[in-house]
Amino acid sequence: MRYLLLWMFAAIICLPACNLEKVIEVDLPAHDSQLVVECYLEHGKPYRLLLTESVNYFSSPTLPDIDDATVVITHQGQSVVLEYKPQLDTLTGKIYNYASDALVDSTGGGTYRLEISDTRGRRITAETAFLPKVPITEITWEFEDKDKEEKDSTAKALLLIRHSEDPEQENYYRMRILRDSAQKLINELDFVYRGLFATNGELTLGTAYRFEDKDTLQVLLYHIDRRFYDYFRTIDDAVDANGNPFAPPANIISGVEGGWGVFAALSYDQKTVVVRKDSITQRQHLQPLHRR
């Protein structure tokens, strides 16, 4: 809604005011630096995380590395110590600085507890658990020139994604759509939502007309907990607030105690579809693909 209002505002009023920007000096008060952690657990993958800290806004853009922390993840009485091992995952382009060779095993269920402390006395704690995977039950698409004169190359398609939803439970989800382009995954859509607006136990999500004929799309549905949901959406709000005069105050709701960050066990369903205009049914029977 606020994006819409901002867009309307810009369209009506701000256009004549283009180029009315200038660089200014801002004297910011000292920032109280806090630890920032990002740790995602995936079945069969090693325990690893990125531990940084928040810095003064105008300080150097280098990533603030924390190399003196003690990081332990405990699951079912077993503690896994993550050592300081900076590394780059060349497949995903993501970096980590604390890792263990132990692999995450989600089969036993239960709660995972993260504890981080550094030599400055800062301490982060968090808990997470693997939630049941919620399968995507249907993906359909429709081109904008359906029933009308064919636009051929310019027509775009929308996507409808459906999954089951139990209205008795308070569920949170993250939906991502990635486009496979020249061996590279391009993020098309990424949003979080609550499972509130189900009809007859089914929840439908739609996109705008934005996909082209023969686009290969990966659709991922993450079943997430409230902490991850709040962290993700408030980060979105905070990023939006920088440059939006109508934005509400944007304090981040952290997913961990004692700092900023997220500690999340990832349960997700993933489907790959090729959007085809010549598809007779415009639907594709969904075959589960391998988990990443």
Binding site: H31, S33, V36, Y40, L50, T52, L63, L185, N187, A241
Partner: peptide, 16 residues
């Protein structure tokens, strides 16, 4: 309201 600090959120694979 102005931010005094910042941090990096690298997010899941596929996101910048």
């Amino acid at each position: 309201s102005l931010p005094t600090g910042r941090f990096i959120y690298q997010d899941l694979p596929g996101k910048d």
